[in-house]
Design a protein around this nucleic acid. Structure first.
Lengths: 328, 328
DNA sequence: CTGAAAGCGCTTACAG
DNA sequence: CTGAAAGCGCTTACAG
């Protein structure tokens, strides 16, 4: 059970251990003769390099991590898919973490080469932990922070304008009571949340009032939010349209409404965000926002690498695409 | 930018580096006095241990990996969710890998503490790579291998009986032409695939013929399989029911059929597998098989740990639950 | 109860 | 072109 080590290969090939490293990493010229000897020793011994030892020495783990608010979110799943593909093509692997308070500290311990924060639940202090630990970090959410470490890079999506445009779209169709189902916490109308501000700003531009009873957010879990949403239908000022912070919410809500006999979009309109694949297979097909995952993932990974290599990286806001289908 | 190291903490606290390790790992008695000195030095310096150095020394990475055929599969997403939760509770983190040919070798390099193979696309040689590298490995799929290394542990689901029972259910409803959409490759009727055998065996038990033109599998991607399935409707012997290898297939197929005016289940019945959340929000709600993810994930992780600690681990087949809803 | 010291498997200047 | 050697940051017998 003794694991084959570089030294074993060196012995067998009659070279020094350094030479083994040279051929594996192609980091130094080695005569064809010795190279072949090393290669066949590796083959015979079934040697594979200990990457942890290498990481330890080089301080590079080739490990990228994502922290997510909800690993069950179908949109997140699709984003991870492209992230993994791109990461792999660059020689990195991808790990998944929930938004637990200790996750940033843990990732610092693990010496990850980069983390992508896809969460709205951390405060600036928690996020800054990563910056202080020298971990390249990209943050994507619709929250405005006042005290973020400048080393934290923000890759935003056009949260404000896309939400404003979708809300306007509904208003133009005659909707007056438009409910808003957020993924991020919303404690007051003045919450610094670009997405929510897009919604309120469209309302105000059209002389409509923001009714906080038509606003709810992800407090405990999805089913809870959905049942709150359904409950809105019973009150006065009951909504004729819902805008959801993501497709997971929107599709579940649509399902529940249909089960209660609601016709969509005739009785009630529903709009999602994220453009998950299954949205187009529902009847009616979901109207939503395409966040262009390949572009997002590519940008995030580029930024992570740029930060790591000391290049200057600007915050950006990526274009999105409104997709009008049948649900609104 | 000099990273704070254990030695720095030791100096500041006026103890030896060993003592710092003792208090961090609680691995040795340390006087309250020195312990406090270490703790406050850690605090002041903002020290966090280098986990890679520790891994290197202890040969334990706390890293669990999953290899999947399709990271986009919604079922897989839900399984990952529970895997991560359980892994975290045991102090492990989880990474995701596609079923690339080099993945097993890569994971051996990375010295992962365990890998969960959730793929039908590897042959025994590729799987055995992990066993030879001494990596605890659990495999879950419906394939029968003849030459698997005995160190590879199999955690199966009741693939055969669940597929047989679902097929019987359709037959009892009067269906004669039942199409089968597999995730695993099917090259012939005799393919050693428990799930497929469940299907063919139910057919035969009822005096029905297995028609290979009603059988297809995931060759390039999902849309491709879906369009092949839809095309079956045009031939002679056109199916009145579909059984899919997972819910991702089933739901997409349902959506496509509905778009073409098909009523489900009146015109065509559809059955999935995996019981993903969105299946119950579709209209009609999806009839499917619940693989009881918590049980599966827990079992896999237990086995992985048992293997690592040298305990004897048996292959098992886990109970599943048939869920009859509206789509069939 | 604490510390000096060996060693984990690599990489990488450096000398020859 | 190749090798001896230092060192990465830890853990862990072992001695005292």
């Amino acid at each position: 059970m003794a694991v084959v080590t570089r030294t074993d290969v060196a012995k067998k090939a009659n070279v020094s251990p350094a030479v083994v490293s040279y051929v594996i990493n192609n980091s130094n010229y080695v005569s064809k003769e010795k190279r072949d000897a090393v290669l066949s020793a590796i083959e015979e011994l079934g040697y594979y390099p200990n990457f942890i030892a290498k990481s330890f020495k080089t301080k590079k783990t080739n490990h990228l991590a994502i922290i997510s608010d909800d690993l069950q979110n179908e949109y997140f799943n699709e984003l991870v898919y492209v992230m993994e593909k791109i990461a792999y093509s660059k020689g990195y692997y991808l790990s998944l973490f929930s938004n637990r308070a200790e996750s940033p500290r843990l990732l610092a311990n693990y010496q990850v080469d980069g983390v992508f924060l896809f969460t709205t639940k951390f405060n600036a202090d928690q996020i800054n932990t990563l910056a202080k630990a020298g971990i390249p970090t990209v943050l994507c959410n619709s929250i405005e922070y006042s005290d973020l470490d400048p080393r934290i890079n923000k890759v935003s999506l056009e949260f404000f304008s896309s939400m404003r445009d979708m809300t306007n779209y509904l208003i133009n169709k005659g909707h007056k009571n438009i409910a808003y189902l957020s993924t991020a916490p919303i404690t007051s109308e003045n919450e610094k949340n670009y997405r929510f501000q897009g919604y309120t700003s469209a309302l105000r531009d059209n002389g409509l009032q923001v009714k906080m009873k038509l606003v709810d957010y992800y407090k405990t879990d999805l089913p809870d939010l959905i049942s709150h949403a359904v409950a809105m239908l019973k009150g006065r000022d009951n909504p004729t349209a819902f805008i959801a912070g993501n497709d997971s919410i929107a599709l579940r809500l649509m399902g529940c409404l249909q089960k209660r006999g609601c016709k969509i979009p005739n009785d009630i309109s529903v709009i999602g965000a994220g453009n998950i694949q299954l949205g187009q297979y529902f009847s009616p097909a979901l109207t939503t926002i395409n966040y262009r995952n390949s572009n997002l993932a590519q940008t995030v990974i580029n930024h992570l690498f740029d930060i790591r290599e000391g290049r200057n990286v600007e915050n950006v806001s990526l274009d999105v695409e409104l997709i009008f289908r049948e649900s609104a």
